[in-house]
Design a protein around this nucleic acid. Structure first.
Lengths: 256, 256
DNA sequence: ATTTACATTTCGGGG
DNA sequence: CCCCGAAGTGTAAAT
């Protein structure tokens, strides 16, 4: 943390000065108080007066949070241009997004807290066990899908789109694998069906279709069986572990 | 605003006490300081140390904001259970989501600001020119879609789902209208195709399919034509005006 | 409670 | 830069 300015119950003029003096947009700003909000752009919206928290970041993004709900009630993406002014005993905070020509205006009638914060954040963020991780796990250890399975292609294009994994099962039968990180929906089943049909047409041979996912939506279950497709339970956690083990193995490989 | 407690650079123990004393989750909490974050649930993630803002709301939601990017880097939805403790000179804030059995842990090594705020927000939020508004506009003034168009049903269920608007064109041909507030994707085209096919099967007659949206994605354009479907440009703004005019007309009707 | 479709979706990757 | 699809999507409505 490099610097900070925290004002409780500041007069509007004082708040205005603090906002204007913040080091050219590098600081993060928190404003808490009673305000109303108007937005106009792709859609338009109005928010009647109430107590909210406004968060303005160094990238020019702005968001208005009510005391409930995860998502902001109003926002403006990064790259917005901020303008503040005091008029008629009100503090106007306006964020204009040049791309999209969208505008957001927050009007404060009362301020509870104003913080101008020099935050320093260089830490890396790692997200594990994505759908891509699941594909990697199957490629690294095909037996988690089925004993004897051999991948032969990833992201292979067939007519309707890209197949996640294409391979041969233990008997040498062409097998399409559709990987989903969440429970597979009926849409996923239909997608797999299209791939299987397309490959049957293309090869003139038998083709198996397997959905690899943590689970199935109920409608998906019946649709799957009626279409002659299959399901293999596969949790992102398990895949994450395989990936991790794979990385460890890689490291020991270096040590050998 | 009913009450507030703002602490600058509080010792961890003092912060812990303030967090525990907040009126049974009704208050909104802001914590600013150096922290690291771990998440485990549908996926898992790690965030290395840095300065962040943590926002905890009265509904049990929690979000961790970096000084850049609109979206929180980590979060927990409403209904999460909060637990705080101090250990080994660190402040642990843990949010557990019973649904989904997901956990999020924020570990602060240094606190810059702690605010416990009694925010009162009962103001209503109005969003204009939504997709529903566009549907209403077509119903109110069907000619904006096509001269002679007559709506006969909204949200009519056919096999694959719910048709936005079902009607008859100037020649009495059954017409399915799929309304999109944004440029229609290929998914939207496929959805419309399913509706049209289903109604052709059902009625055994010719059926038209029209996408009403501000525009089309390019892939959607070619797919649309190859499937024999149609497109009608329709902006949310225009629809918004029609709705507004409709309301005005209603008011003048009262005056007559 | 579960499913479905929408969102000012946001975000990231590929062409 | 646009297009496209996934997201720890969130959210509200309908079943």
């Amino acid at each position: 943390m490099e610097g900070r300015l925290v004002l409780e119950n500041p007069p509007l003029e004082e708040a205005l000065e603090a906002l204007r003096l913040r080091r050219s947009r590098e600081d993060t700003v928190l404003i808490v108080g009673e305000c109303s909000v108007k937005y106009d752009g792709r859609a338009s919206s109005t928010l009647e007066p109430g107590d909210r928290i406004v968060l303005i970041k160094s990238d020019g993004s702005l968001q208005v949070h009510r005391p409930f709900e995860l998502s902001p009630v109003n926002w403006q993406p990064s790259g917005s241009v901020l303008r503040v002014r005091v008029q008629d005993g009100l503090l106007f905070v306006r964020a204009y997004n040049p791309r999209g020509r969208e505008s957001l205006e927050v009007v404060f009638s009362k301020l509870v807290l104003l913080a101008v914060l020099g935050l320093r954040d260089t830490g890396s963020f790692f997200l594990h066990a994505s759908e891509e991780d699941m594909r990697s796990a199957i490629l690294r250890q095909p037996s988690i899908l089925e004993e004897g399975f051999k991948p032969i292609a990833v992201e292979r294009q067939v007519e309707p789109g890209f197949v996640d994994i294409l391979g041969l099962d233990g008997k040498g039968i062409l097998t399409v694998v559709e990987v989903k990180r969440n429970d597979a929906s009926r849409d996923a089943v239909l997608q797999l069906k299209r791939y299987v049909d397309s490959l049957r047409m293309e090869t003139g041979k038998e083709v198996r279709g397997i959905i690899a996912a943590p689970g199935l939506a109920r409608g998906a279950q019946s649709m799957l069986t009626s279409l002659g497709l299959e399901f293999k339970a596969l949790s992102p956690q398990r895949c994450g572990e395989i990936i991790k083990r794979g990385k460890e193995r890689k490291m020991t490989d270096f040590l050998r």
